[in-house]
Amino acid sequence: MDEPIWLKFIVAFVIMNVLLVGMAYMTYFERKVLAAFQDRMGPTRTGPKGLLQPLADGAKLLGKEDLIPGSADKWVFFFAPLVVFVTAITSVAVIPFGTSFDVAGQTINMTIADLNIGALFVLAISSVGVYGIILGAWASSNRYSLLGGLRAAAQVVSYEIILGLSLVGIFILTGSLNLGDIVAEQSRTLSIGPFEISNWFILSQPLAFVLFLIAAVAETNRAPFDLPEAETELVSGFHTEYSAFRFSFYFLGEYIAMIVMSLFASTLFLGGTDGPGSDSHVLLGILWLLLKTILFLFFYVWLRATLPRFRYDQLMGIAWKVLLPLVLLNIVVTAAVRLAVNS
């Protein structure tokens, strides 16, 4: 924490812009992967292999007319998309992109805000993100939007619990809520007989990993949990009435939330920046983190290409009747094992 505040701002600025470009190309990635799943080509016309498609989409959205329904609550309608966008992008602040390195006499910390409750911070911010959806839905004064907003509220509150509780096992094993500590704990190499394996939490907390993955998909409102926007039932749900750049804030927010969730999952379960050569080279560590993140993003797209959508009551039933007992079981077992090892 010795670095001056201006340096922190520069790091934050760089990471934010990388994230925005990453989001733009996440849409390209999704379209291409989805196209491959569905025996199609995906975008090919804009630029070589359609690589400029995200930019064209952005320009198009900027140029569209910004429609506001006559009966909408204007102020709430204005700022609701921003809530989604800002909260999505804020939570990246606590993700450790590596330890620190020295450039021109300055120590650059690769975590923007090294909070001692980093993991909880991500959860807190993502739970605030749902306000963007609920308020946007309410402000549109459209019944499809309202139903989408209600679904979003119930869904996010339920799956937030699963998401948070699935991490408790990790907190018990690490003894810290700091994401840096969690990565450091996973960087240790365990020797079991002749084998040397990394202490990634996916190995010691497999059940928690699966539960986290399910809850993370639900938390980001993606298929098969995309009920708030279910386009075949609710005609896009909460953002039915949004257009132009206001709509794209929702879009940006959703994709950035996916990227952040993937980064978060990689950090918590797949060792974050840990990987061969990551101790000596910071950039190699970032590369490993990105590879793991892309794995999760691919998983998101894979789900979307394969699975039908849950029904509202089934979604809630799974959260409360299946996932919650499992996640509590995981906590009890982890705590018992930890207690037995300690004593």
């Binding site: 569905q38 025996d39 279910a230 075949t232 699975l307 039908p308 959508r309």
Partner: peptide, 12 residues
């Protein structure tokens, strides 16, 4: 299938 959310089925 698309109505129920299975996106790819429609294209197949």
């Amino acid at each position: 299938a698309l109505d129920i959310g299975a996106l790819s089925m429609s294209l197949y």
